[in-house]
Computed example of a mutant assay.
Amino acid sequence: MDKIVVFETYYNPIEASIIKERLIDSGIQCFLTDENTIAVNPLYNQALGGVRLHLFERDVAIARSILQDEDVQIPLAEEVAEFDETPIKIPDESRTEEVCPNCGSRDVGYVQATKNRFGIFTTVISILLMVYPFRAKKTHHCFNCEYEF
């Protein structure tokens, strides 16, 4: 019966998973311990001693030679290699094409009011029920001059 040994210890669970998958793709049976515990709570990393990669003792020399091979190239698909790096502008739906009547700025959004946020009805109900007001007004707010309209 073959003995299972700790091959290496990693303090980064992602790196450990990459090494494990590289060895599995090469035909070496291996597994990780404490990977999920450290991924959930990284503060346990030092206490547990990191993520340990286990494999059979007979495969240690082969695993070292596989991991020392730096000429491994992973072919990328053509569409990934020819990816256009121009940024895509995502429209901000909270911003509108409104113009501030006070300063003329286009940096205007339809957001929760900062002044006179609550109506009379909301205030009365909130006082009677002793809760925080449940409905607030929304207005156009200029982020340049802080004017609300």
Rank of each mutant, 00 (worst) to 15 (best):
D2H: 13
D2C: 09
K3P: 09
I4T: 12
V5D: 02
E8M: 15
T9S: 05
Y11K: 05
N12E: 05
N12M: 01
A16H: 06
I18R: 13
I18T: 08
I19L: 07
I19P: 06
K20V: 09
E21R: 15
E21S: 14
D25L: 14
D25W: 15
I28F: 05
I28M: 06
Q29V: 14
Q29G: 05
Q29I: 12
L32E: 04
D34A: 07
E35W: 02
N36A: 13
T37E: 10
I38G: 01
A39I: 14
A39R: 15
N41W: 03
A47E: 14
G49Q: 02
V51R: 00
F56R: 15
F56G: 08
D59S: 01
A63R: 00
R64F: 08
R64I: 08
L67I: 09
L67A: 08
Q68L: 10
Q68M: 12
Q68D: 13
E70D: 15
E70L: 12
E70S: 13
D71E: 11
D71Q: 14
V72K: 08
E78Q: 14
E79F: 07
D84R: 04
D84K: 03
E85Y: 08
T86F: 02
P87G: 02
S94D: 13
C100R: 06
G104H: 03
G109M: 15
G109C: 12
G109W: 14
Y110K: 12
Q112I: 12
Q112G: 08
R117D: 00
G119W: 00
I125V: 04
S126W: 01
S126G: 00
L129Y: 07
F134W: 07
F134K: 11
R135N: 04
A136L: 03
A136G: 06
K137I: 05
K137V: 01
K138N: 04
H140Q: 12
N144L: 09
C145E: 00
E146F: 11
F149N: 04
